[in-house]
Design a protein around this nucleic acid. Sequence first.
DNA 1: CTCCTTCGCGTACCGTTGGTATGTGAAGGT
DNA 2: ACCTTCACATACCAACGGTACGCGAAGGAG
Lengths: 196, 196
Amino acid sequence: MTDGARARRREQTRRTLLRESRRLFASRGYGAVGLAEIVDAAAVTKGALYHHFDSKTDLFRAILEQVQQEVAQKVAATAQAHDDPWEQLTAGCRAFLAASSDPDVQQIMLIDAPAVLGWAEWRAMDESASAHHLAEALSTLIAQGTIAPQPVEPLTHLLSGAMNEAALWLATATDPNALAATWAALSQMLEALRHR
Amino acid sequence: MTDGARARRREQTRRTLLRESRRLFASRGYGAVGLAEIVDAAAVTKGALYHHFDSKTDLFRAILEQVQQEVAQKVAATAQAHDDPWEQLTAGCRAFLAASSDPDVQQIMLIDAPAVLGWAEWRAMDESASAHHLAEALSTLIAQGTIAPQPVEPLTHLLSGAMNEAALWLATATDPNALAATWAALSQMLEALRHR
DNA sequence: CTCCTTCGCGTACCGTTGGTATGTGAAGGT
DNA sequence: ACCTTCACATACCAACGGTACGCGAAGGAG
């Protein structure tokens, strides 16, 4: 069913298209890359592209989904290596910072995505991919009394936004211990949430 | 010198162009607005537009500069109403949140700007417009011992990113006391920076 | 007042872009 | 052996950002 020469070729074309367009979008930005360049790099034509994706925006959406899943998986894997919910939160945040330091992830997920898809859709995708986990972790910590009772949504957005911007800055920072300093400051903020 | 019929007409055309394009960019986003629509709304032609601006991107840059100055002025005015550096910081952050709740400001300054101009240029403009003041306030507080000695740059980016994302979320939040809850959480984080 | 220059802007046009309609040949069922 | 379906190629289009050039009014020089 999922097999056959035609299905295999289809999958391969789609994967090549995603791979090449992701490479180009990541290196030069969504707006600066034309479809002609993409289909040329993938050694196909626009007909093939539009057979797999509804539009240039739809292609970008598929790439973003892929990037977000990769980041979310790294964060989840790191967090699940710990038992204590508080350590899960801190380790998850560290893992997110590390994953977001990848230039590809930054250009696609943090810079272009909100402008290309609109903030609302970007937000919805980020929610289901990673912000949901963050909110859940915070809820758990509130439930067990580690964090003072308070609405989790504002907290989620403040932390998410802080880490996103910090990751973008780290990419251009020349100071070799900028990552350590950033983590120290973020850790300081997280500690502030602990019940006194 | 700055007067004369020709100079007055020039200024008026430029201002009309900025006003209309800002309105359109803010309401539908940079990518979804064409130059034809802009010059039509301003009752001029593309010749006039390109006489005042080098490109569509350059037009956007001029608008962004204007928006950032407005926000920065509101923040500075609020901060300077206080004497205590700590109150200047907190009041400034509150003012920034309030100013960034304007949908026009969000679409132009927070959503489109990084993608249109690239993160580096956006960062540079934000730096000279408002982030510089934030960093200065933090430096002052460190110098006077209110905040523990630490690098200010990571702190600046964490706080700036947190406030940006929070402002975007507040725009879509239905909960009427979302602003209060957000400020409570942010205030909690700021308090954490105070020397123990 | 006259002449010439400059300036602000309009007109006409171009190359490229995202998107579409249609053709085509191989794969797969019957 | 036949017909359908599918994956993709080809050819084309409207709209876009951008440019070259023309034109009329404003302003300085004599």
